[in-house]
Simulated assay, not measured.
Amino acid sequence: MTINMMDVVGRISYNCDIMFRVIDIREDQGRKIAVLYGEDVRLIADAPYEDLIVMDQNERMKVSREYRSLEEQSFKLFRQDIDLLKQKQEYDTTNGYKKAYNYFQVPGRVLHIDGDPSYLKKCLSLYERIGVPVTGVHCNEKEMPNKVGQLIDYYRPDILVITGHDAYSKSKGTMNDINAYRHSKHFVQTVREARKKFPHLDQLVIFAGACQSHFESLIHAGANFASSPSRVNIHALDPVYIVAKISFTPFMERINVWDVLRNTLTGEKGLGGIETKGVLRTGMPFNPIKNEQS
């Protein structure tokens, strides 16, 4: 069977447990090697050409339905959290509903830098559905350290997301060796460059990492939240749920890490972080300008 670029494939040796897109095919010592991007998880992998099989439409739809079901369940739980946050904020702002104040809310602005344009598009769609103000930028993981500074200067975000694809390779070293990871060192360098602009953890909230990323290095570099504590795969949309929770939490409140993680698709094995302030701000009065008819 011929495998072509952008085909959706599974790895025979892994019982086709994950769907991948073929993004490159190269020769390595006389063997054909395919470079794969996960369709629903932020994993990059190399695989022998002969270990791949094109996933038929029925199988793709079956796997896709399973992921969509998980995504929708996670979204509903997250939506409940956001509604509770808004009700609490309304109660506090109106002095226990005793006074009818005209107020407005300014959720935190997100700059999402992603190494995968397909995942970035999915994330932007979810941000829009939730109501988070966001700017998305596609950037190769290796180029992120050189570009993040100017992007921060231009967009002035409250929350920065640095993600794409990653993977741990046992043949390259132990799990403690950052050089054994595909892009963890680039994510770490990017976080460090961002912290040169905003050293304080509550000035700029940072999420960094992808599948199997070196969690400890990312946190030590200055990320508030990162992946992956147990070196497992994370879902493509997990960063959105984390930063959206931060975006809608008032800046006078601190976020319990478990409250952020519990409604993600991956949970604490794939995601972790440190206590962080929210970034939502409330103002008043709310006085929209109305167009007057002459």
Rank of each mutant, 00 (worst) to 15 (best):
H235N: 09
D259I: 00
E253S: 09
I242V: 13
R254L: 11
K245R: 09
V232E: 13
A244L: 13
G222H: 06
I234Q: 08
H235A: 14
D238I: 03
T266N: 03
A236I: 02
I255H: 07
N233C: 15
V260Y: 09
G270S: 00
N233L: 15
M252S: 15
G267F: 01
G283E: 14
G273D: 02
I255F: 00
L271A: 07
G272Y: 01
I242S: 09
N224R: 10
D259F: 08
E268N: 01
D238M: 06
G278W: 07
I274M: 13
T264A: 07
V243W: 09
F251L: 11
G273M: 08
I246Q: 04
V243Q: 06
F251V: 06
M284H: 00
F225H: 03
S230L: 15
V257A: 13
G283P: 04
T266R: 05
V257R: 05
W258L: 14
G267H: 13
M252V: 02
I242T: 04
N224Q: 01
F225T: 02
G273Y: 04
D238P: 03
M284W: 11
G270M: 07
V257N: 12
W258T: 02
K269Q: 05
T249I: 06
V260Q: 14
T264K: 07
E253T: 00
S247F: 08
T276S: 13
T249Y: 00
A236L: 08
L280C: 02
V240G: 12
T266D: 10
P250W: 05
S230A: 15
R254F: 14
N233W: 15
D259W: 04
V240S: 09
V243L: 08
K245M: 15
K269E: 13
N256F: 07
A244M: 01
L261K: 12
A244Y: 06
G222M: 14
G270F: 01
T264S: 12
E253D: 09
S227L: 07
V260W: 01
G273A: 04
R262H: 10
S247D: 00
S227Q: 00
F251T: 03
Y241I: 06
I274F: 03
P229R: 13
R231E: 14
T282A: 08
M252N: 15
K269S: 11
D238Q: 10
G222W: 12
F225V: 00
F248M: 10
I274L: 14
A244S: 10
N263V: 05
I234A: 04
A226R: 10
P250V: 11
N263Q: 06
F251N: 14
N233M: 14
I246V: 15
A236C: 10
G222A: 07
